[in-house]
């Protein structure tokens, strides 16, 4: 029996699935959700804020529902990731911070300042003009079926000719994800580490990797 697979762009009605994807990708197999730890928010509050931000349709960064591509299996979303060309609509980090500034209360934004030394240690700039892949997620019951590779190949084919390189960032201790991306052809291009004690309180680990793939 063959499984029916369908590739499509995300719609506003997919937002709950996208929130699930962003949170799982951020946690990276741990119980630490950076949006919650950095801004001192509870997880349900993070879920609500992410839903609202995704619905704003600020393209060129990951917190936008139309940046997401979905692979459907048997008419259900099975895998997703956000993609955009860095710099096409402005710096993704500036766009994202304008969104965060609009939705996260000032007092909570200020709390993040305490962790600035960690962000400085782990800072990785996205390459302008490259295809960015973020919040990469396969639903737990859909793992091991080749969905990640299928979705990445589909997206890469769409962007071939428009850009030469795909780039992603991953938690440095998420070996399973790193192995999966390597199998698809990604190679580690940059590694960062923070020795600040706070790193392990707020992030899945104190290591981060950038990986690239020539299209």
């Amino acid at each position: 029996m063959s499984t029916s697979l369908l590739f499509r762009q995300a719609k506003a009605s997919d937002i709950p699935f996208l929130v699930e994807a962003i949170i799982a990708a951020e946690k990276s197999g741990t119980d630490r959700l950076s949006y919650a730890t950095i801004y001192d928010l509870e997880e349900p509050e993070v879920e609500r804020l992410l839903s609202e931000m995704l619905d704003e349709e600020i393209g060129g960064q990951e917190l936008c529902f139309s940046s997401f591509h979905i692979l459907e299996s048997e008419e259900k979303p099975a895998a997703t990731m956000a993609v955009w060309i860095e710099g096409e609509e402005g710096s993704s980090s500036v766009l994202r911070s304008a969104l965060l500034a609009h939705y996260i209360p000032m007092d909570n934004l200020k709390k993040a300042m305490a962790f600035r030394p960690v962000f400085t240690d782990l800072r990785m700039d996205r390459t302008e003009g490259s295809l960015q892949m973020e919040s990469i997620y396969v639903a737990p019951e859909e793992r091991g079926k080749g969905h990640l590779s299928a979705l990445m190949k589909h997206i890469s084919a769409q962007y071939k000719g428009k850009t030469k390189r795909a780039e992603l960032q991953v938690d440095g201790e998420n070996i399973r994800a790193i192995n999966a991306y390597e199998k698809i052809g990604f190679r580690i291009s940059l590694e960062r580490q923070s020795d600040k004690a706070d790193a392990l309180r707020i992030l899945p680990s104190n290591k981060k990797c950038a990986m690239t793939l020539d299209l």
Binding site: S93, S97, A98, L100, L109
Partner: peptide, 18 residues
Amino acid sequence: ANDVEGWDSLTHSLLINQ
């Protein structure tokens, strides 16, 4: 932001709010 030391995504959010 590229011209000013320390003006990153985090401080940008704070600047806009303040």
